[in-house]
Amino acid sequence: MTEPRLVHNPLLAWRAIEGEVVIISPEDSVVHELNATASFVWMQANGERTPEEIAVLLAAEYEVAPEEALADTRELVAHLEAKRLLLSSPAAEGSRHG
């Protein structure tokens, strides 16, 4: 079982302004603003990292225990996936053919 990688919904437009990400979702005309740590998580979601890997990076960058970083990352990812801002993609190795 391969872990899903997190990737931004390609239909969105987003920009980091002074370290905080603003996401525009044209489909439902909503602008989402993320705080600094959520922005960090968002910017690590490049299609190559799992929530667990992102939580490790979060704990390395911020004053937080790895367990708390993992729980908070999972909670945020669930929220962003529910809003269709983040998508889970299969691991790159698992999706290759040929």
């Binding site: 989402h32 600094a36 959520a38 960090f40 979060l58 960058e61 908070d72 990352t73 945020l76 962003l80």
Partner: peptide
Amino acid sequence: GKRKYIKPAC
């Protein structure tokens, strides 16, 4: 070298 942590949120 570590930044102050706040819970990630929208």
